[in-house]
């Protein structure tokens, strides 16, 4: 996922500056978290105008990675907004991309006696001790958008995340429908070895399996970058010429780069060459409204409702599946216009 990469980038780069400050802050006040809801439900209860408000009066701690991309900010806003709507007291912590901050935040939540914890882990490993502490304290932990590796799966209630393979499959299915099952496709892969790149490739190929006339004529890495996406598309369009009828990109940025290359090759993106990508960022919606991008499969950061559904079920003692798949939507030129204004990231 793009946001993950971006997080690492900032973690590495900006982190250098913030780390010292953050460390001092954390040392000074071990529980640097602030409630963000409209106030505890005791102060008059949840507003009557929010029909979604069910039961109030519990407290949730949310340990977020940071605020490195619009995708992540949208996720934070979604969870904060949902907490407010349900009248939940939310304690929020921003780890600035560092696991040690996040572990401290989770310990802080446990010490404050929250009812549940929502965690978007910075990295996959090293969570066993603190999750055991949460379990001993009887606090369920709901993971959002990224998984983690623990030997004992009972340490967390559930993981709520997108399924990259499914995203690739949805892109393929949409393309089959659009092209009538016949296309010569250029695939722009993500960074070699990255999980979303592997899974989105796999899903796309699965989706095309039944359709013999859907051919991937070239598959190259665009490194999830707009510039490389453009450069690679430029070269491949020269080699294959007008044979190319579709471009599938593993993220929106590469697709936006490819669109420029298609235009420069004297062809009309969205018409002569069908372009489909994944993520559903704002720039992709703008391109869809313009008609240069045909379709984007969303990788939704709006996990608030699902997260709090899971929290409430866990609090009620319901056994949850270990993975909850986010229901990602497919948007294309026909639907983009209606939703672009409501897009949050």
């Amino acid at each position: 996922m793009k946001s993950n990469r971006l997080m690492n980038q900032i973690g590495a780069r900006l982190g250098l500056f913030t780390a010292t400050t953050a460390a001092i802050l954390w040392a000074g006040c071990g529980q640097q978290s602030k409630p963000v809801t409209g106030g505890p439900s005791a102060s008059g209860g949840a507003p009557a105008s929010t029909p979604g408000a069910t039961k109030a009066g519990y407290t949730v701690g949310f340990a977020q990675v940071g605020a490195e991309s619009s995708w992540r900010t949208a996720e934070t806003d979604s969870i904060k907004g949902e907490a407010e709507q349900r009248g939940v007291t939310l304690k929020f912590s921003d780890a600035q991309g560092k696991q040690e901050n996040q572990i401290k935040a989770v310990r802080g939540f446990i010490a404050q006696g929250v009812d549940a914890i929502i965690l978007a882990p910075v990295v996959e490993t090293g969570w066993e001790p603190v999750l055991k502490e949460a379990k001993q304290a009887g606090i369920p932990v709901v993971l959002v958008d990224r998984g983690l590796k623990v030997a004992d799966e009972s340490l967390y209630a559930t993981l709520i995340a997108s399924d990259f393979v499914a995203e690739g499959r949805m892109a393929a299915e949409w393309l089959v429908k659009k092209t009538g099952g016949k296309a010569s496709i250029i695939e722009l892969q993500g960074t070699p070895g990255a999980a979303p790149a592997i899974d989105r490739k796999k899903g796309f190929e699965e989706g095309l399996k039944e359709h013999v006339d859907m051919k991937i004529i070239a598959s190259q890495s665009g490194d999830f970058r707009r510039s490389v996406g453009k450069e690679v598309a430029e070269a491949l369009l020269k080699v294959h010429g007008t044979k190319v009828t579709a471009v599938y990109a593993h993220n929106d940025d590469m697709a936006l780069g490819a669109i420029q290359a298609i235009e420069e090759a004297g062809r009309k993106p969205g018409v002569d060459v069908i372009v489909v990508s994944i993520d559903g960022v704002k720039g992709a919606f703008e391109a869809m409204v313009k008609g240069t991008l045909n379709c984007s499969v969303e990788c939704s950061p709006l996990l608030g409702p699902l997260a709090f559904d899971a929290v409430e079920k866990a609090l009620a003692g319901v056994e949850l599946p270990k993975k909850t798949i986010v229901d990602d939507q497919v948007y294309d030129t026909t639907t983009a216009k209606d939703v672009i204004d409501s897009r949050k990231y």
Partner: peptide, 13 residues
């Protein structure tokens, strides 16, 4: 680099 893609991609350029 920025001009070529009509965008400044600070994290990756």
């Amino acid at each position: 680099a920025a001009s070529n893609i009509k965008a400044a991609d600070s994290s990756r350029v």
